[in-house]
Nucleic acid binder design. Structure first.
Length: 866
RNA sequence: GCCUGGGUGGCGGAAUUGGUAGACGCAAGGGACUUAAAAUCCCUCGGUCCUAGUGGCUGUGCGGGUUCGAUUCCCGCCCCAGGCACCA
């Protein structure tokens, strides 16, 4: 019992959080629709894969997003803040095998549980727009878009060498291969396999994708750099090498056409179709076949790793160097990539290190064609290739020309002779979307023996993924074994035909889900034009840096395709992008039991064997290193507000977040401090009117008032300009400290003082609301308000309230801090200079020395140079 | 090897435009309250030296430079993290 005679309420998050969550939901606060009279703001966080339960990475990502969503609402924006599920994918199949359940059941159960967890966190989503990509109502439209793309030639099938994982029994995109192994099974070496696959022609859009990298000022520079490098534009030329005793001409791509006179041999990639043709009937045929077969067994990564020995074999054939007319030998080499350029290279051993290594190994001739500026370069003394600039030699009409200038001249010369042309090459490859998996969206194509590949007509979509099938042995897809699925009639000729049994890469679903959120229930097309036109593009997208390339590049591509089909009126999906860092924690390791979960460690010892544990460095939280914290435990113990506050306070979003048990405790304590402060003074505070800044008040109260308005300014700018919630929270902590200090140091608190404190208190609660929405709603009510805090507008600071009549000036001598003086802000520079020089402590330092210079920075500092 | 970030107390971090280095929080130490503990509150808290002060020196990975003044800009180097991998 306090002096006022009522029981002080203790902060019990479990009681208040669920209460406010159901209040918001009941009132429909976060439901939105198009409103021409309000400015829209589309805030999106990357939707999760429903893996079972939410993890700290989700919590951090969504806490950041929720602050922005709630803040923008308080600022009067019409905020679209949706949530959904990236619901197709392999883990569902793996779990199905392990737990003897169906991927669909596993997925939907997980969605239900994770939705309840997200709701328990108090995130302000418009749940009425929830989507799950595994529902036919969603993938129906994806199939429709695929059909359109097929009709326009943007989706096509081709035979390719693909990365094959024996464990997944599926194809992996090149990007999904990590260290030569499957990115999901890091101990499974990926093998090359020839297979029919569906591709989307992202290369048709390569120029625009690259160009627009410079038109996305709201994206982090590093993400754009990574995308540019991934696209990999390079300017060069195609050069033609006619084969001796043959009609064939080999095309090679090079960026170094200036070195053409030094090309002394040519290399094919092992996959190149001409290899077989040119060697047929030649003595080298068998040896070449063996080499190709052997090399292709090794996957691309291993084959081309820099520590792999460069190997090759002579084909027995020769071609003509288009510049010199000389006959040069043709080789097949392991380091040449079929996927890049034309799959064949001209080799200039004197000016390319790889070619040099290869030439040395097989005793091939060297010819220097670029002379270094100050020295001669005899071929027989070279120990490495000369890759720098110089002047051309041994280059016919181009002798004496600086090599960089010759780039254009040489290609013009060869072009006239019909031996080549200038071109731009890209590293980006078409997007392979075929998956030999069950749990994905079926590719809507029918294979007819008469008509070939026929798209499923629009009125027959969706091709529903049958749920009454079970995975085959080893996790293989049941679709190719299910006549009920694949047996059909050709939509064109009506004869018996077979459905495509491949399903789509889940990156396809995530390439347009943000559009679908704008009209999630529309059933006459992928989206309703007015709705998607109102909401798109996403104003702020927030997600992990790990998606910097694939997901974001595919989404950009897909947006441009949908634009060209007339569905969208925009060129880019995400105006602003925030990439947040990872959540990290130290690892615990027992000599006997390996990595341990935090709960398996007690007093620095393993709970299984009592051995002392080793504490490893802090790395990304993951199941494999077991350094994970379950957010659910924290919610149960501290409540959602504390978890949110910790995630936001511990570090700025773009940096990695260092996990700390004590840090959570600190967030909990701060919320309790705010709670206690208001509870203890509730009686007085609730009946007091907040100070409005107009009437004259004593200086110590003016300090509190000023601090209040400084806090508004600081918190607003930190959220608005840079998402630095950690410093925003610090500012609010300082405000509370200021008020507490005042109460602790003054015995008698006047009415006016209480009204100034009331203002500070209300501002504190309002500023904290986007960060810790539940406790602030409760406190807002405790302060006597009847309307929900979620409906209160964001406060504006008063410029006049920030004004100070005096200012602290620091005085330096030779750049070293020596004294501080408080001066009225009205003082001129000259007056400040005089005051500074007159300062007693400064006098001591400059006493017998000559003053050379005095620098005055108004309202900041004086530096006396002696 | 290349590209991109980063390196600040015992720890997470702050210093936003070249102007008081270490805000705010955590941990630690001391004290108050308590029968006791928890909770809470108060004080100290980069290093070092002394005459103990509104003290001196030193200090933002290392070495230089520019500047009256550098965590911030420039050059060279070291270390850490992430991405890429013979790209012709």
């Amino acid at each position: 019992m306090t002096a006022e005679g009522y029981a002080m309420k203790k902060y019990r998050p479990q009681d208040i959080e669920v209460k406010w969550q159901s209040f918001w939901e009941k009132e429909g606060y976060f439901k939105v629709s198009e409103d021409r009279f309000k400015e829209k703001y589309y805030l999106l966080e990357m939707y999760p894969y429903p893996s079972g339960k939410i993890h700290m990475g989700h919590v951090r990502n969504y806490a950041i997003g929720d602050v922005v969503a709630r803040y923008k609402r308080m600022r009067g924006f019409n905020v679209l803040h949706p949530m959904g599920w990236d619901a197709f994918g392999m883990p569902a199949e793996n779990a199905a095998i392990e737990n003897n359940t169906h991927p669909a059941k596993w997925t939907y159960d997980n969605i239900d549980y994770m939705r309840s967890q997200l709701k328990r966190m108090g995130f302000s989503y418009d749940w009425g727009r929830e989507i799950a990509t595994c529902r036919p109502e969603y993938y129906k439209w994806e199939q429709l878009v695929f059909v359109r793309m097929f009709e326009q030639g943007l989706a096509y099938k081709k035979k390719t060498f693909v990365n094959w994982c024996d464990q997944c029994q599926t194809v992996l995109a090149n990007e999904q291969v990590v260290d030569g192994c499957c990115w999901r099974h890091t101990d499974q070496e990926v093998v090359l396999k020839e297979m029919d696959s569906w591709f989307l022609k992202i290369t048709d859009y390569v120029k625009e994708l690259l160009e627009y990298c410079d038109k996305l000022p709201g994206w982090p520079e590093r993400v754009l750099t990574m995308q540019k490098n991934w696209i990999g534009e390079s300017h060069g030329a195609i050069l033609r090498f006619p084969v001796v005793d043959s009609d064939h001409v080999i095309e090679t791509f090079t960026t170094r056409q200036d070195t053409i006179y030094g090309a002394t041999f040519l290399c094919f990639a092992p996959e190149h179709p001409l290899v077989r043709e040119l060697t047929r009937g030649y003595p080298q045929e068998k040896e070449v076949d063996e080499f190709v077969e052997r090399t292709l067994k090794v996957d691309t990564f291993m084959r081309t790793a820099d520590w792999t020995v460069k190997e090759g074999v002579f084909t027995g054939r020769y071609c003509l160097n288009p510049a010199t007319g000389e006959e040069i030998p043709i080789y097949v080499a392991n380091f040449v990539l079929y996927e890049y350029g034309t799959g064949a290279i001209m080799a200039v051993p004197t000016h390319d290190q790889r070619d040099f290594d290869f030439a040395k190994k097989y005793g091939l001739p060297l010819r220097v064609v670029i002379k270094p500026p100050d020295t001669d370069l005899p071929e027989d003394e070279m120990t490495e290739a000369y890759v720098d600039e110089g002047v051309l030699v041994n280059s016919g009409p181009f002798d004496g020309m600086p090599n960089m200038e010759a780039l254009d001249s040489i290609i013009e010369y060869l072009e006239k002779k019909g031996m080549g042309y200038k071109t731009v090459n890209y590293r980006l490859k078409d997007w392979g979307i075929s998956r030999q998996r069950y749990w994905g969206a079926p590719i809507p194509i029918v294979h007819c023996p008469e008509c070939g590949e026929v798209p499923v007509p629009e009125d027959q979509l969706p091709v529903v993924l049958p749920l009454d099938l079970d995975l085959k042995e080893g996790g293989k897809s049941p679709l190719p074994f299910a006549p009920s699925f694949y047996e059909t009639d050709c939509p064109r000729c009506g004869r018996p035909a077979k459905r495509e049994t491949d399903t789509m890469d889940t990156f396809v679903e995530s390439s347009w889900y943000f559009d679908r959120f704008a009209s999630p229930r529309y059933d006459e097309g992928p989206f309703k034009k007015e709705e998607v036109g109102y909401w798109m593009p996403v104003d702020q997208y927030i997600g992990g840096i790990e998606h910097a390339i694939l997901h974001l590049l595919y989404s950009r591509f897909y947006t441009k395709v949908l634009r060209d089909m007339g569905y969208l009126g925009i060129a880019e999906p995400f105006t602003n992008l925030l990439t947040q860092g990872m959540v990290c924690k130290e690892t615990f390791r027992c000599r006997e039991h390996g990595y341990l979960y935090p709960e398996e460690v007690k007093d620095g010892r393993c709970t299984h064997c009592g051995k002392e544990i080793e504490i490893g460095s802090s790395v990304k939280m993951s199941k494999s290193t077991r350094n994970v914290i379950d957010p659910q435990d924290l919610i149960d113990r501290y409540g959602a507000d504390t978890v949110r506050m910790f995630c936001l306070f511990a570090s700025p979003p773009e940096r990695d977040l260092e996990w700390s048990d004590e840090g959570v405790e600190g967030a909990w304590r701060f919320i309790n401090r705010v709670w206690r402060f208001i509870e203890e003074n509730r009686e007085l505070l609730s009946r007091m009117m907040p100070y409005d800044g107009l009437q004259e008040i004593p200086p110590d109260l003016r300090d509190i008032h000023r601090k209040t308005h400084q806090s508004i300014k600081k918190v607003t700018e930190d959220i608005e300009d840079r998402f630095h919630f950690n410093t925003a929270i610090s500012a609010i902590m300082e405000l509370l400290n200021t008020v507490n200090q005042f109460l602790n140091t003054n015995d008698e608190i006047t009415e006016v003082a209480w009204s100034v404190i009331k203002e500070a208190t209300e501002i504190m609660v309002v500023l904290l609301h986007p960060i810790v929405p539940h406790v602030t709603e409760e406190l807002w009510a405790a302060l006597g308000h009847e309307e929900s805090l979620a409906k209160v507008p964001w406060p504006e600071y008063r410029e006049e309230s920030l004004a100070k009549e005096s200012r602290l000036i620091v005085i330096q001598v030779n750049g070293k801090l020596r004294s501080r003086i408080e001066v009225p802000v009205s003082l001129t520079e000259e007056e400040i200079r005089k005051k500074a020089l007159a300062d007693e402590r400064i006098q001591r330092f400059v006493a017998d020395k000559e003053i050379k210079k005095v620098i005055v920075v108004r309202n900041k500092l004086v530096n006396v140079v002696v």
